[in-house]
Each structure stands twice: as C-alpha cells, then as structure tokens.
Amino acid sequence: MSLIELRNISKSYKGLTLFENTSVSFEKEKIYGIIGHNGSGKSVLFKMICGFVFPDHGGIFVNGEELGKNRRFPENFGIIIDKPGYLGDKTGFENLRYLADIQNKISDEKIKETLEKVGLHYTIKQKVKDYSLGMKQKLAIAQAIMEDQEVLLLDEPFNALDVDSVENIRGLLKSLNNEGKTILLTSHNNEDIEVLCDHVFRIRNYKLEQIK
C-alpha cells in the first residue's frame, strides 16, 4: 500500500486550474522531488496532501485513509508550506516549545538538539521577528522535524540558506531518510533535487509527470 496516494484529483485554486484528473502515489522511506514553474501548483499540492485544502474532484489517501472523510489532517506530518511561520515576539526556542507543547511529546532537550541540528543555537535570545530569512527558514525546518514526524512535506526548504547551511540541511534530510522518514520536497535548484531525490515529478499540463 502506498503511503500517500492521489486518485484522479482535479483542483482549481483562486481561479487557476492547477490539476486535472491526476493520479500519483508516494511510497514510504523515499525522497521525492516535485518541480514545476512558478504558480504551477507545488504548494497547493502539498496543501492538499496535508489536508489544508481539498481537491475539487478525486481523493487524497494517506495510509489508505481518505482525507476529509474521518480525518481532516494526516497524523505525524512535518511541513513547511509557502513560508516559515512563527511567533515574532518569542525566541526560536520558545517558538518550538509552544508548538511542541500542543502535543507534549518532546522535551526541552530534544528541541535544543533539533535547533543545533539545523544550525541554530538554542541560546540565541533574539526574537524571531529579528531573525534573518535564513534563520527563519532553519527554524521552520526544525519545527517540521523536531517531533520525529514520519513524513516531511518541505516546500522550498533551502530558500534563503547560505551554502554551508544548504550542505548541512541536505545531510540532515539524507540522514532522516536513512532513519526511515519519507520526504517530499520542492526546489527551484536542480542540484538539490538531483542530490537528494530518489524520484522526481514535474508538474506540467495540469499533471504530475514522473521524470526520474
């Protein structure tokens, strides 16, 4: 059984047709790259997979269960969609702590460890509103992985990162995949896709075409 399956989905978003009768499935423990030109629907695809928006036709199935029937959001997904999200007047650590408190599954130590992994020091007292774009991006990656989420949907995870950070995050994603995580990511940088992804899909003519 596929981990994620899109069955005959069609979707128009804000007056723009993005997908027409598209089917695709994603298997466990692989890294998938999704590419496509600006506005082709990469972010909307991710929003559909994590239940933020529903397809106009067709269905999205996660672990065999259709989203929107008994379950609105799939469990254990780590996401970055569109842009990082944060509480501007809190520190990076506090941001992660408040998010983690919701499910209360991880300790302060785990949060600190995750911050170190993405290249942010937990001791930084700076408020997130004063972070650089790259630091906000790292914080977004940290919130997506800190609770050992099984599936990561990462929309442009390398945005605004410097060369060293890109290398670090690539290594981090590889190691998470080796631990059994499934990763779907988008990137405008072909190198990220080539280096990381087992399979690549391109959005063209309202369909997802497999090109690798």
Binding site: C50, G51, F52, R72, F73, P74, F77, G78, I79, I81, D82, K83, P84, G85, Y86, L87, G88, L99, I102, Q103, A140, Q143
Partner: peptide, 20 residues
C-alpha cells in the same frame, strides 16, 4: 498576529484548529 506570521499553518497538523 499568528495568521499574519503564518504560525497557524504549523499549528494545524498538531491539533484541531477549531479547538485552538
């Protein structure tokens, strides 16, 4: 503020947004 800063999007996978 949380809507403006896109924070709610990262709350949604963790709990029912209506409860939040």
């Amino acid at each position: 503020n949380e809507k403006k800063d896109n924070y709610l999007q990262y709350v949604m996978p963790r709990t029912k947004i209506s409860d939040y």
